[in-house]
Design a protein around this nucleic acid. Structure first.
Lengths: 150, 150
DNA sequence: AATGAAATGATAGCATT
DNA sequence: AATGCTATCATTTCATT
């Protein structure tokens, strides 16, 4: 991982569909070595893949909420059961386990408030080992999935 | 936006570098109409772009924290000043403004605890109009930037 | 480890149904 | 709106420095 690799990653973060030809020019390398480096970054697990970025609003997904979850005291199994069930809810687009309270922080995206209500009642409330659920509406996505600082 | 457009978006969310040739096969269309649809989705703002997904750990970014921010009472200017300053901190990879307390929820990524400490003291604490800052360490990223539910 | 060249494959525009 | 065709451009492999 040298300076050139970082340049490659920075460019591909900005435009994941850059042609290797164009990428090579931007990082100041000729085609083949640039190509080899991209492959190497993919193989080594630094470059996990490429994804299209969609506009949730344009797809009718206009509602977002943060959900705070505290679990009941339990063993490793309780945690695993909760996480496994969580992963099956596609509207949960981000989830992190924290140190301390709350135990989890979820970001949920739905079409509208009523879809969220249903999701809350039918899927979130019934997740295993939950002691406490709180949710707050997102007013504005100020920064969304920013490029990693290289 | 019909069923075929949704299929196209689903495929491109999974693999943003799919060739139009391969994409056309997967969605059951021939090359040219598939190509036209992708362009149309880009122009219409549904498809915002394409990005490489990086592995933060493999890049030495092993530390993550959630930061809860409450602002002092203030006018629109205060909010704008805060958000403008926030956007200049590259380690803040996600930020949402909420309804109610806290006002903002930030996700911050740094190399390690000491880098976070510096960031906290030098950049986060000095953001304008902040009344209260609380932070919690992320133990595990359970779900990371999941594909949108189509 | 980078370069250049050459075969294979993808893209994008256009004419047709 | 979808298809098929074609010229242009990109990718990928291999031989060379």
């Amino acid at each position: 991982m040298d300076r050139t690799d970082r340049k490659i990653l920075a460019e591909l973060q900005k435009d994941g569909r850059l042609s290797v030809t164009e990428l090579a020019e931007r990082v100041g390398l000729s085609l083949s070595p640039c190509h080899r480096r991209v492959r190497a970054l993919e193989e080594s697990g630094v470059l996990l893949g490429y994804r299209a970025q969609l506009n949730p609003g344009a797809l009718g997904l206009n509602f977002s909420a943060m959900v705070f979850v505290t679990l009941r005291e339990g063993d490793r199994r309780a945690v695993e059961a909760f996480e496994t069930a969580l992963i099956d809810i596609p509207q949960v687009v981000d989830a992190q386990r924290l140190f301390g309270e709350p135990d989890y922080l979820l970001q949920v995206i739905t079409q509208d408030l009523s879809a969220f209500q249903r999701l809350y009642d039918e899927s979130l409330s019934t997740l295993p080992n939950v002691q406490r659920l709180t949710s707050t509406l997102v007013m504005k996505q100020v920064i969304q999935n920013r490029l990693l600082p290289l």
